[in-house]
Amino acid sequence: MDVLLPRTLEEALEMKAAKPEALPIAGGTDVMVELNFDLHRPEALIDICRLPELREWKRENGMIFLGAGVTYGRIMRELSELTPLTQASRTVGSPQIRNRGTVGGNLGTGSPAGDALPVLAAYDAEIELASANRARSVRWNEFHVGVKKTALEPDELILGARWRAVRGPGSFSKIGTRNAMVISVAGLCLVMDDDARAVRVALGSVGPTVLRASEAETFVAEELTRSGNWDDPGADLPVDAMGAFAERVAAAARPIDDVRGTAAYRRHACAVLARRALGWALAARREGVGRP
């Protein structure tokens, strides 16, 4: 097995074009496990962890770019104002794993249990891809097309994710049957977008890919409009509306029974998390968090 060691992005894309079967490796927290367990033997590895373009995050023109090579540890230290992303990063494995694992790994592996993915979905992120002769962006839901299936072409690398910075509170929660270091049984990210007057809810581990609860989103945005909450964060949302929102979120889940949990519990958990996350967001707005 060859290991390719590009020093620049340009070089990396050339190598990838010449050897499309080369599997990108950054932190190795997914790839090395597969290798060690002899589950997957790629022809070659391409080590992308030294490419500066992938290791940066930046804000420009109201957008946020998060490089594929940024580790969860760095997100927690450097991007703490992005609450849902930081919370999701905190739930990834152990400190050692967070110091190695990258957002690009979640994207490339494409497991619906990837902890960062519901956050990117709730942010409506575009995934930026490049090959030697073109660059393109793909919306998050067009990038992950099935369980561990992505729209990545063989000659492409994932550069990172880009999304419009959102004004408004949000959170990420993850269910697991122990209190740390656990693969997601169900995950939920809720983001309130004060400017767009929208609520976006994404679910992890309850379908073949990360899902958005679109009906619930529309429903709750309308309820917030009806109650006047968008203009007056002190205005209460009717309790019934909270419950109806939670039910709609649960209905969006497409869970299965597996070794980590039952479909019934996953659906139930989505409802509980949805109600809680909305409650936290409304409370944060009342208290003025995320407002200028």
Binding site: T91, S173, I175, G176, N179, A180, L273, A283
Partner: peptide, 21 residues
């Protein structure tokens, strides 16, 4: 009550599933 203690001390621990509910 909600939001009265470090979420890491509630069931679910590091995964931020509750604030005391």
């Amino acid at each position: 009550g909600p939001a009265t203690r470090d979420p890491i001390t509630v069931p679910g621990g590091a995964q931020n599933v509750g604030h005391g509910e």
